[in-house]
Write a protein that binds this DNA or RNA. Structure first.
Lengths: 232, 232
DNA sequence: AATAAAAGAGAGCACTGCTCTTGACGAGCC
DNA sequence: GGCTCGTCAAGAGCAGTGCTCTCTTTTATT
């Protein structure tokens, strides 16, 4: 019978989940550096060495948390996008911007784990980059949809795209298909601008200068939309 | 005679400097999390407890490194700005962008310490924020100079600045004086875009998609300049 | 029921930041 | 010149960490 084996595997999956849950809670209060396997084990009523049956190292636990985090923000972004009328490209862009900001404000330490400085000595395995692009394809699809619908009218202020960029642009088209190089550049700028803002806001770089961050963020993202060529 | 006392203080200053130098080297190789007081003491041929005569805690050492780092990037930016003709505002903007990028690429771990996730449990003292704005005033002066010279012709695509932003804008004017609210918004966007790009590049968020980062960065910053209204 | 696989328990290693106490050295005062 | 006092290095020690062993217990399969 394989049901007995399934029973064992079920309790294993259960415990694995419990470990990541506790770890995520510790992460939320202490930050990535303060995440301690022993503390997690203690809270589970386990001895520390037993944790290693489930996660061979601290980095593997972090990897699991990172993948979960990318999926969480990806799901939030997907939901926000899906809640908008598909042809309202500007609304979709603003919705996903606010979705990722809301998630980041609700999970600042997880945001730092995903988008902040890489934890020292930790090399992100390939599994994480697959999850990392989940939100990116949503941004890309919005831009792509708008372009294909003829709804993109960017201001003609940028200098011509330099020739050597075309190779990179071709790779980006795997995520934002069917758009010309100059649109890709604007997409990159909006993308880095979005996360640049969030990192500054969450990491305290505004230094009590921007207090009404909600207003400023919303307006900045509207400007980014205008720069992308999305209609007001 | 106070020269004897000065002698004592001189060797103290010397040792303090040696500690920060070694710590900075460790930081460059191991990252902020791997910075160990004991390792620094070992390399100095000192016993670990002696370090605490000079830095009462690990956080105080980090604070010293952070302040040094902000000053280093501030100085690099100042020099790059000063090397340009004052009326070439676009050239000055591009120069400071490349200066901060060059510094970041040369000191990635220090960059992470300054602009990445805050180290857990570490609260930046007020001394650091004073040093942190050193580069910011340079960006601000470039925008301000260009505006006052009438050289700023931003594309009219942004929606009107929302009224609640005016309070924050007034605070920002302490750094970028004499500019209207909409210019401040564009300055903020360019500023967050610059560091958003650098963080993505240094923290590996581009995931081997953008390989010729130098070309892409330069062009992005030219687009930011155009969005700011700086002449091509 | 016997056997093989999986999981928990415990001790231990090398490391960390940090504190406390002890002993030595040197500068200032009488 | 001798004495005192503040500064400094050294050492031991505490509580904590990640991680690796070995040993025992539990569970599932044959």
């Amino acid at each position: 019978m394989s049901s007995s084996r399934t029973a064992r595997e079920r309790v294993r999956a259960e415990l694995t989940r419990e470990i990541t849950d506790i770890a995520r809670r510790h992460l939320a209060t202490e930050g990535a550096g303060g995440l301690s396997l022993r503390a997690v084990a203690r809270e589970m009523g386990m001895v520390s060495s037993a944790i290693y049956r489930y996660f061979p190292s601290r980095d593997d636990l972090l990897t699991a948390l990172i993948i979960d985090g990318y999926n969480a923000v990806g799901e939030a972004v997907e939901n926000a996008d899906a809640a908008c009328p598909p042809e309202d490209h500007t609304g979709r862009w603003l919705a996903v911007c606010h979705a990722v900001r809301d998630w980041a404000l609700a999970h600042p330490h997880e945001y730092a784990l995903l988008y902040g400085s890489p934890v020292p000595g930790y090399q992100a395995p390939q599994d994480t980059v697959a999850a990392a692009v989940r939100d990116t394809v949503v941004y890309g699809r919005i831009v792509s949809d708008a372009y294909l619908a003829g709804a993109l009218n960017p201001p003609a202020v940028c200098p011509p795209v330099p020739a050597p960029f075309s190779e990179d642009a071709a790779r980006v088209r795997a995520i934002i298909p069917d758009v010309p190089d100059d649109v890709i550049v604007r997409g990159l700028i909006a993308w880095t601008g979005l996360f640049g803002w969030l990192s500054f806001e969450l990491f305290g770089q505004f230094n009590n200068t921007i207090l009404d961050t909600g207003t400023a963020f919303d307006h900045s993202m509207r400007c980014q939309a205008a720069f992308l060529g999305l209609p007001a």
